[in-house]
Nucleic acid binder design. Structure first.
Lengths: 191, 191
DNA sequence: AATTTTATTGAACAGGTGTACAGTAAAGTC
DNA sequence: GACTTTACTGTACACCTGTTCAATAAAATT
């Protein structure tokens, strides 16, 4: 049995209404009542599908992180492992992806929004790294911990970027990232 | 003119009430009304000082990040620059700090809580790194971007730790961090 | 086309939110 | 100690929240 047509219509109406209201106010200022009024959906119906406005937004956000995975895997279409010394700034697609979905990431990173979306982004990047680097394990290093480190480091750059209102180009960040990753640890770097 | 005694009393009462309620329910489930009932403070008075329950919690959290700065600077009491090759797992105090304030960081990292506290933590660590590494600048690398990268990488490990309910020891994470930082970039590491 | 299933509606409830304002009381000032 | 300032209180209002339940209507099933 497929999903009921009524459910599809209701969700579609709620989705559209949320996007409409997002043009006017920030996510944390949007009430369930307002979305329902615009969507012409009973407020009780909203609760049959979601518990909060945030759950509705989460549905969008998951579509976006799916695109992130596609962007990431793009440079791997022809090789299976990218060694750092071969790493070309043009092959990194993460920052371009963020730039493409600026509108959404501005919401995701705004300070009153729950940290949940951050975790969704973190997990997506971490999973990509985990799969990616099965081949290049380091002795005495917990692989998962290493990927958490690496994944969140990249998000650190993105946070910085966001707080500067995405003022650098994605290309510039690509070059910077390659430089940072290529520092010989012997050159010293405190913790 | 010093701050009015009445303000001090009111804030103290609200602080205590919040701590009381935090033993029973999670931050996002606590209402302003409940805090005020417990603190025996009029709800209108709450709004004279704060806009949300979260603003009240933020006051605590800033005290805690102040302790983080002290913990961090501990190993630098005798030297001014720590070179990576000299870096000893015992000198890193960040993970111990988190362990000490587990109770608070469980709140800070819980998924319904606004991302604001994350930024407070991130900024604190980033500022520590910025000051710390003025001496060891790398050519062609934006120093601030590098510190954002490094600071958030460490938080990546902490997030992992949190999601495993702080099940490793701080010592273990110290050793892992030293291992990760010491990887020769030549050993290859994809993005 | 008739029947069954179920998503949606509308109304109602107790409680929370954010704001305003006049009255009170407690602090600071002289 | 009397005076002035201002933090706090109590009340009120419109709106939002989360939940319940019987009634309705729109799907799916036969």
């Amino acid at each position: 049995m497929r999903t009921d047509l009524r459910v599809i219509k209701t969700k579609e109406a709620l989705h559209n209404a949320l996007l409409e209201v997002l043009d006017e106010k920030s996510l944390n200022a949007i009430s369930i009542s307002e979305i329902c009024r615009r969507a012409k959906v009973n407020r009780g119906t909203f609760y049959l599908h979601y518990a909060q406005v945030e759950d509705l937004f989460e549905e969008y956000f998951k579509e976006i992180t799916a695109d992130l995975a596609r962007s990431y895997q793009e440079p791997y279409r022809y090789v299976t492992v990218l060694k750092t010394e071969e790493l070309n700034p043009d092959t990194i697609r993460i920052f371009h992806h963020i730039e493409n979905y600026k509108r959404f990431y501005r919401i995701v990173f705004s300070k009153k929004v729950p940290i949940l979306y951050y975790y969704l982004l973190f997990e997506e990047i971490k999973q990509l790294l985990l799969k990616d680097q099965e081949a290049i394990l380091h002795e005495d290093i917990d692989h998962e911990l290493h990927c958490s480190y690496q994944a969140n480091a990249i998000i650190g750059i993105i946070i910085d970027w966001y707080h500067k209102d995405f003022s650098y180009s994605a290309e510039y960040l690509n070059r910077q990232l390659v430089q940072i990753v290529n520092i010989q640890s012997g050159n010293s770097k405190g913790i």
